[in-house]
Nucleic acid binder design. Sequence first.
DNA 1: TATTGTTATACTCTATAACTATA
DNA 2: TATAGTTATAGAGTATAACAATA
Lengths: 162, 162
Amino acid sequence: MTTPRVEADLGWALGRVARAHLRTAQDVVSGLPGGPRGYQVLAGLAAGPPRSQLALARTLGVDRTVMTYLLDELEGAGLVERRPDPADRRARQVLLTEVGSGRLCGLERDLRAAEDELLAPLEPAERDQLRALLQRLAVGGDAVSACQVAAEIQEMQADGSC
Amino acid sequence: MTTPRVEADLGWALGRVARAHLRTAQDVVSGLPGGPRGYQVLAGLAAGPPRSQLALARTLGVDRTVMTYLLDELEGAGLVERRPDPADRRARQVLLTEVGSGRLCGLERDLRAAEDELLAPLEPAERDQLRALLQRLAVGGDAVSACQVAAEIQEMQADGSC
DNA sequence: TATTGTTATACTCTATAACTATA
DNA sequence: TATAGTTATAGAGTATAACAATA
């Protein structure tokens, strides 16, 4: 054995890849309020019914206090809109504005390109494998949800909706 | 489309999985100086020639100033040892102590078990796939290095060295 | 002049608790 | 009593610059 054993560690590999992706994403979304997190908020709002701040925070894996700051910035930039939830006056619905929707489309394209560069060491089929495996883990291993997500990605690409 | 589009995002999936792994690792290595980072230092020292603090910092992807604090703690706990490099009096060689080596073995076993739980949604073959793909990306896509790492993992497990 | 390791400082994130207004 | 959102504060983690010793 000549190589340090840490390279066999899943946590080490995950950390390195995640950090590398974060650096890439930061470059791509530079200027966007909230950085990569801000992008994820926009993506979390797209293609679905309006969501509460709390629901959004949970999908993104951040505290609800962080969501307040993020949305303050994004709303200030005119990318999202907060409106009271008619069904529950404690909650607020968050929506993507026209501007935000357009911005999201461009960012998704740029990010996809940057990611392909990041995944360059892998064959195209392997990249899809990695995406699929990580998605299944991230959605909680629920095979049905994972399958649904995969179908929607294809749909999205076929649509040309973005 | 009913599910938020963020779930199709690689950065989102990577982030969620990496955070989940970090939480798991923090539980497992609780009490170890430096937490998961401290474990990675120990793993980085195992099965190789003594390494300088800077080399170690680079593999772990942290600043060299962080390495100083980490090693202060680990050395204080008697897990590693710093000695002057006879070939370069600016540098210091970092070595695993007997205690550190033993501690590492136990931690590796516990971590492996915890990781299997984390990867439970995937079939055994898929877990290996994911590990392999992430490793190849993390070592920089160098297929030779990646292959070497994979061989060493098998060797390690066959060895029963830990 | 560049590099290794150390120290001190500042900045960014994150976690926590407290507060309001609703349910 | 519990929940959604906000605000303020403290802590961890990280980045930066400056320094001494050596190459």
